[in-house]
């Protein structure tokens, strides 16, 4: 079983009505073991995020390709930055 932390930021946190959720009781062999299926899961469970653009950070590093996730990973959904 693995446990993942998903973080929402900016407008995405507002639309998801949460800043953080923990996904637990995921079987290592389940479909939800990579970042691509995780995004599908998020779209399904947070439909207001479906038409929104965001990058993914896995353990605080931006990822551009599908990656396997493991127990304890922190996945952040990052809408376009607006610092400065």
């Amino acid at each position: 079983m693995i446990e993942l932390t998903v973080l929402f930021f900016g407008e995405l946190a507002e639309l998801a009505a949460t800043k953080e959720t923990t996904l637990s009781n995921i079987k290592d062999t389940s479909a939800l073991n990579d970042t691509s299926t995780l995004v599908d899961y998020i779209h399904e469970n947070y439909p207001r995020l479906r038409n929104k653009t965001f990058n993914l950070a896995l353990n605080r590093e931006i990822i551009t390709e599908k990656r396997l996730v493991k127990n304890g990973d922190e996945i952040a959904l990052l809408p376009p930055y607006a610092g400065g």
Partner: peptide, 12 residues
């Protein structure tokens, strides 16, 4: 300044 705007996860 450009890098701060492009690379740093900050929202307003």
């Amino acid at each position: 300044v450009e890098q701060i705007k492009n690379k740093v996860p900050i929202w307003g």
